[in-house]
Design a protein around this nucleic acid. Sequence first.
DNA 1: TTCATACTTGCATCTTAATGCAAGTGTATA
DNA 2: TATACACTTGCATTAAGATGCAAGTATGAA
Lengths: 97, 97
Amino acid sequence: MKNVSKFSSLFKVLSDPNRLGLVFELCKCREANVGQLSQCCSIDFSVVSRHLSKLKGAGVLGANKKGKEVYYDLKREELARLLREFADEIESSSCCN
Amino acid sequence: MKNVSKFSSLFKVLSDPNRLGLVFELCKCREANVGQLSQCCSIDFSVVSRHLSKLKGAGVLGANKKGKEVYYDLKREELARLLREFADEIESSSCCN
DNA sequence: TTCATACTTGCATCTTAATGCAAGTGTATA
DNA sequence: TATACACTTGCATTAAGATGCAAGTATGAA
């Protein structure tokens, strides 16, 4: 079942509280760099950096380099679409053939 | 942010491939007991039992004891509702105030 | 070219969780 | 009551992942 690994890896990347906190933060900030997120979420710089790159790797965030800084932004529509796709699949009666 | 822990724990329970496989299986089977799921998913009995109880604890599954057997079923609407709630929150501009 | 800033990555440590066997609990049937 | 069946739980092992410091890389400014 390829949907299993597709969705389980998405859920995994969203399952860490710090990571999900960053997602919510980016949801209201529109975009932010590593230093800003590290500060407002009170998480070590290197930890934030790794979380963001993991979220980016999963397609949840986009990244935009401006000079020395990297600005991350939430890919709202993609993320929302994936979750609704899962919800639809769950609600349709025989979802995993 | 209480939504962070609410959703991160939901995502965590869905993030294990075996567990998500059981969810998909229950999605098409409507309901099944531990032995049936253990067999069709090729996972050790005790492992399946623990995964199911974790999913039940998270409100993803319901359980129904019939004699010696326990039949688990997927709470489709609740699960779909939660995920759509998350999707809506993500898409609304300032979601985490 | 030197320095500071912004970020990434290597590494060691520590938690958390998954796994499977074996033992325990509960329930129906002989 | 004894036995079998369905499941749960304890325990030890193993693996995966989070964390933070320190060192490395990249980019802009002096």
